[in-house]
């Protein structure tokens, strides 16, 4: 694929208009508000940094591995491992929902990559893979010809994008404040990328155990806007 074409694909995969359902998730933010962990824009900033750090330590190894080896065997192995690592039911279900949607949309949209469609058709409904999000994101990046750094940076970008979008809908920041925050945190996210990129999946870990506990409470919330 030539450079020009690659750019168009990159932008499309990262565009919030791609209907992958990311906006149904708050990554534990809604539960954190109800547990009084987050109640101001400052708290929000801290929450997002912690979320990005935990995303870096837990998911980037899977994005990296899939981008390096975008094949069925690696995908299947990593999907099974991630399923055992996502011990929190709320985030496990969120990962499967978003991964399945991303796979479905990408198999249709990126029709120049026939193997995506083939992999999805062969596996859908067989139970052989759970369709977790990070390995699928990395797989698609790899098949689109991205390099590993780019795909791991992109994964942090969409996490940042989606959590900030959730924050505006939870009335923690206005749209302009959200854009300012997203820009400020891009620099922090780049440091987080440098810290966690290119690690093997065996080293994937949680670095913010409180976040994990709080996100698990999401299913107990009496009233909620988001799925996770």
């Amino acid at each position: 694929m030539d450079d020009k074409h690659c750019h168009w694909s990159q932008w499309q995969l990262l565009d919030s208009i791609l209907p992958t359902g990311g906006f149904a998730h708050s990554f534990g933010l809604e539960a954190a508000i109800q547990a009084q962990i987050v109640s101001s824009p400052d708290d929000l900033k801290t929450f997002v940094i912690h979320l990005l750090d935990n995303t870096g330590s837990l998911f980037l190894p899977f994005v990296h591995s899939a981008t390096q080896s975008p094949d069925f065997e690696t995908w299947k192995k990593n999907d099974m491992l991630l399923d055992a690592m996502l011990t929190n039911e709320v985030s496990r279900k969120a990962s499967v929902t978003q991964g399945s949607a991303l796979m479905r949309v990408s198999a249709i949209v990126f029709s120049e990559i026939p193997s995506l469609k083939a992999m999805r058709e062969n596996l859908y409904g067989t139970g052989a893979v759970s369709f977790h999000h990070a390995p699928i994101f990395g797989l698609i990046c790899g098949l689109l010809g991205w390099d590993g750094t780019m795909s791991q940076r992109a994964y942090l970008f969409i996490t940042l994008r989606d959590v900030i979008s959730a924050a505006t809908r939870l009335n923690l920041v206005g749209p302009l404040g959200a854009a300012v925050l997203q820009h400020q945190l891009a620099f922090v996210a780049e440091d987080i990328l440098k810290r966690w990129m290119n690690r093997p999946v065996e080293e994937a870990c949680q670095t913010v155990p409180l976040l994990e506990t709080v996100q698990g409470c999401h299913s107990c919330l009496f009233s909620k806007m988001f799925c996770s």
Partner: peptide
């Protein structure tokens, strides 16, 4: 079931903050 918690000084933010 695989679970690893890692808390290390010198990260992006301090452990106490987290």
């Amino acid at each position: 079931f695989f679970d690893t918690v890692l808390l290390e000084r010198g990260g992006i933010n301090t452990i106490i903050e987290r």
